[in-house]
Design a binder for these strands. Structure first.
Length: 817
RNA sequence: GCCGAAGUGGCGGAAUGGCAGACGCGGCGGUCUCAAAAACCGUUGGAGAUCAUACUCCAUGUGGGUUCGACUCCCACCUUCGGCACCA
């Protein structure tokens, strides 16, 4: 008997050997084609949990598979280390964020290593270290130089718990809460740094160059929120003023019976008549207070106040009242609308409430001229619309837009929901924004050669709502790089998503100090061929990094359009109770516990076996034992001696052919499953294969060449998923080190071909019998055999055979009446 | 409301036009053992019938349809999950 499978002994042993031999460290110096495989870097939150394993272990298996297929695969790992959670955790523990974060990096790196992944640790990056954030600052300067970064006073979302502003993307849910701490945000007007993501809105909608999941594409498309319409000016009656409005329905313009301004609109006070002033100002005050808390209530009455002024419909000269109402938002379009109650639900409600006329201008097909019960928003025929009457509304859309353009009333315009990216944070733990404000020179970028602008270690970083760096005099007061006079530094830090927008570039040449990355290395490795990670970043990191790439292309730093060519989103691993893992529920699974018992290979394989990777699913402690049992059986089968008395076979050659066929069929199945990220069915196929081999081991087939081929194929196919046990067994069967430097086995269609196939016999589509035929048996023969089968006979008897259909190699269906 | 994904045994899931339930968990029966655990072997969707594992019927969220044949394709709906949402 061989010794037992003891993962605790073999796993650390091989990990040390691989590291010592540097078998996973890659360079450009290779004849093989490159493949950049990237998995999202972890945030330095403390412990590595099973979710990290779920994200990384299957990624590692896939990266290893690609490597075995003959690619020069880079698979790097690093740490996203700046940002609120680390800072908050450090404050809670009363230690410095740098200390806390670097402790976590240390700890998490150690935990990551127990996974046995083929990470190239020489390439590790940590975003909070000066040799990294120096280049984050450098990118900021480049964006600034190219007009893509600007400072503006804007109404921003502010998290009162985190004491900082947030980007629009970091505000979630119905109650508009902070993505990190779930506290509802408040509005503030602040001078903030923004990146011109909206410049790229259209390009970001184009996914034709990348193979990304439909889900992510839909979410980004939705987020960008492109809509085509017309912007035109509404002249104010008895005034030289006019109000720009945006509409996606120019075809309804003749139906306008009022206009509405958002409460915050700049013309509100100008247009309000003295008599209406008191009511309007009161409403505005109430509305701004309301908008924070109650705006989500969909049942809310649509309310507003009349300004006392009138606007003129530029198409027909009709005079309509101008209202102020909070159902119009300042943040979208022009902050003012034309009210067309007959063809917009909100305008309809509003008109009903204030007794405004609701004239129909687009007639439904069978309209009898009566007033509408509800807004009609479908296409129809134009009525009451002057020269456009009688046209289908879809046609009138363009005709009216053309007319407006020709008569300089307005012009076609595209509107987006997406905003520019707000990157200022009033917190300590981030990369300082490399800008100096000088009384003489104004806003001055820090010269590149002065980077990094170091984050002072001795700042008082407790959050107050203002930037902690503002209170660090040594940091704040400086001299102007341009005139040498007294100046102040920008004291806000950058959103941590800035750091993660370019980390994949840094991996290509981590020590490089002439730029963010060595252009030669960058040119070799980028773009990323395969990216994997969670869906939660669909409209954050994944949108930002695409924007960043396009901006870098325009600046001349990169020469491609998309950072990651292929994306795969894994699902979420749930607790044993089918609920999201959380400390409060007490359903958190700690991978360390399992590594010490069943071993890393079992954890890896179990995570892949649970179900489709993109779907996630509940952890099951019995399930992992099943997978561990499988590895035990593989161990026993491969490592243990052959039985002394093998069962003799009647036809040894046949048994050998059968074994080869199973082997090649399995290679085919496993290869295709790995290509498609179907780890669960891949492992099921390997289990089935192993079960077959366990049985075959009792027989003389073990003395044929097919047997050792089968054992080798089994280990090679299992190697990406379970790197330790396969390395150990590979050595024990006397093969040269390392299994991870071997090529992936190829399947031979000839060997995989069935000698006999089972054809299903159906009568009227129901399975009644099975027959065995040769794969290329002629159709007539198969049909006859099917008709003769006892199962078919039973159901044909006394009936008439109308038709016999043969789906080659699969089924014969006999249709009877 | 709009966009996206999903609904299959006791459980995780497999099969994407051709044997529904691969593989695994759990259950049941057995071998080994003083006994238990582990390991191994057998069995396991439901109902009926049978000496029988011959056989018959039912079954993939619901209702229709296409097809010789539908978990799979089409139409309508229900439910769940995720995203967006007073976006003009």
């Amino acid at each position: 008997m061989a010794d037992d499978y003891r993962p605790q002994e073999i796993e650390p042993k091989w990990r040390e050997r691989w590291a010592a031999d540097r078998i996973y460290n890659v360079s450009m110096d290779s004849d093989l084609p490159k493949y950049y495989f990237l998995t999202m870097l972890p945030y330095t939150s403390g412990d590595l949990h099973i979710g990290h394993w779920y994200a990384m272990a299957p990624s590692d298996a896939k990266a290893r598979f690609i490597r075995m297929q003959g690619y020069n695969v880079m698979f790097p790992m690093g740490f996203d280390a700046f940002g609120l959670p680390a800072e908050n955790a450090a404050i809670k523990r009363g230690i410095h964020p740098m200390t806390w974060t670097l402790q976590n990096v240390e700890r998490m790196r150690g935990q990551l290593k127990t996974m046995g992944a083929m990470f190239d640790w020489d390439r590790e990056m940590v975003s909070c270290l000066p040799d990294y954030y120096r280049w984050t600052q450098w990118f900021f300067l480049k964006l600034y130089q190219h007009g893509l970064a600007y400072r503006a006073n804007v109404a921003v979302d502010f998290c009162p718990m985190c004491n900082t502003t947030l980007a629009r993307e970091q505000v979630w849910g119905d109650d508009r809460h902070c993505e990190r701490c779930s506290t509802p945000v408040v509005k503030k007007d602040l001078e903030q740094w923004m990146l011109r993501m909206t410049n790229y809105a259209d390009e970001l909608l184009d996914f034709s160059a990348i193979d990304w999941p439909e889900r992510v594409r839909a979410m980004q498309t939705n987020w960008i929120g492109r809509s085509e319409g017309v912007e035109f000016r509404l002249p104010v009656a008895d005034s030289h003023l006019s109000i720009p409005v945006f509409t996606t329905r120019p075809d309804t313009v003749y139906g306008m019976t009022f206009a509405v301004l958002a409460p915050e609109h700049e013309l509100v006070e100008v247009l309000t008549t003295p008599e209406a002033m008191e009511a309007v100002l009161a409403y505005r005050e109430q509305a701004t207070r309301f908008s924070e808390i109650e705006r989500l209530s969909t049942e809310r009455q649509r309310e507003g106040v009349f300004t006392g002024s009138y606007a003129v419909n530029p198409m027909n000269g009709a005079k309509v009242p101008i209202y102020v109402a909070d159902y119009v938002l300042t943040t979208y379009g022009t902050g003012a609308i034309m009210g067309v109650p007959a063809h917009d639900e909100r305008d309809f409600d509003f008109a009903r409430r204030y007794g405004l006329p609701i004239p129909v201008v687009i007639a439904p097909e069978d309209w009898d001229g009566r007033p509408l019960e509800a807004a009609y928003v479908e296409p129809g025929t134009m009525v009451n619309s002057g020269q456009f009457d009688g046209l289908p509304s879809s046609e009138a859309w363009d005709k009216i837009a053309d007319y407006m353009e020709a008569n300089q009333i307005g012009a076609r315009r595209v509107n987006y929901r997406v905003h520019d990216w707000l990157i200022s944070r009033q917190r300590y733990w981030g990369a300082p924004i490399p800008i100096v404000y000088c009384e003489q020179c104004g806003t001055v970028p820090v010269p590149e050669e002065d980077l990094p602008v170091l984050l002072p270690a001795d700042a008082e970083f407790l959050p107050t709502g203002e930037s902690p760096l503002k209170y660090h005099e040594g940091f704040r007061y400086t001299t102007c790089p341009r005139c040498g006079g007294p100046a102040e530094r920008e004291t806000d830090t950058m959103d941590t998503f800035m750091c993660s927008s370019w980390y994949h570039m840094r991996y290509t040449s981590p020590g490089y100090d002439q730029g963010p990355f060595d252009p030669v290395e960058g040119n070799y490795w980028m773009p990323v061929d395969q990216y994997t990670g969670g869906i939660e970043h669909a409209t954050m990191h994944l949108l930002y990094t695409r924007f960043f790439t396009k901006a870098c292309r325009d600046i001349g730093i990169l020469d491609f359009d998309e950072p990651m060519l292929r994306l795969f989103n894994q699902g979420i691993i749930l607790g044993e109770d089918n609920e999201k893992m959380s400390k409060s529920r007490g359903n958190v699974v700690n991978p360390d516990d399992y590594i010490n018992t069943v071993g890393a290979d079992s954890v890896r394989a179990y995570l892949m076996f649970i179900g489709p990777w993109e779907e996630g699913g509940p952890w099951n402690s019995r399930g992992i034992e099943g997978v561990h049992r499988f590895l035990n059986r593989v161990w026993t089968m491969v490592a243990d001696y052959l039985p002394e008395q093998a069962e003799s076979l009647e036809d040894r050659a046949q048994a050998e052919r059968d074994l080869r066929r199973i082997t090649h069929k399995t290679i085919k199945k496993v290869t295709e499953d790995l290509e498609g990220f179907r780890f669960n069915t891949m492992l099921a196929a390997l289990m089935e294969y192993n079960n077959y081999l366990v049985k075959a081991k009792q027989t003389e087939v073990t003395s044929t060449p097919a047997w050792s081929e089968a054992i080798e194929a089994l280990l090679l196919m299992l190697a990406p998923s379970c790197p330790h046990i396969t390395e150990e067994l590979w050595q024990r069967i006397g093969k040269p080190y390392s299994i991870h430097l071997q090529r992936w086995p190829k399947w031979d269609p000839e060997q995989a071909k069935d000698e006999v196939i089972t054809v299903i016999v159906q009568v009227n589509g129901r399975m009644r019998d099975k027959i065995e035929v040769e794969p290329d048996a002629p159709e007539e023969m198969v049909k006859q055999a099917a008709l003769d089968s006892p199962g078919a006979q039973r159901h044909i008897e006394g009936k008439q055979v109308a038709k016999v259909i043969y789906a080659p190699g699969k089924v014969v269906n006999i249709v009877v009446r």
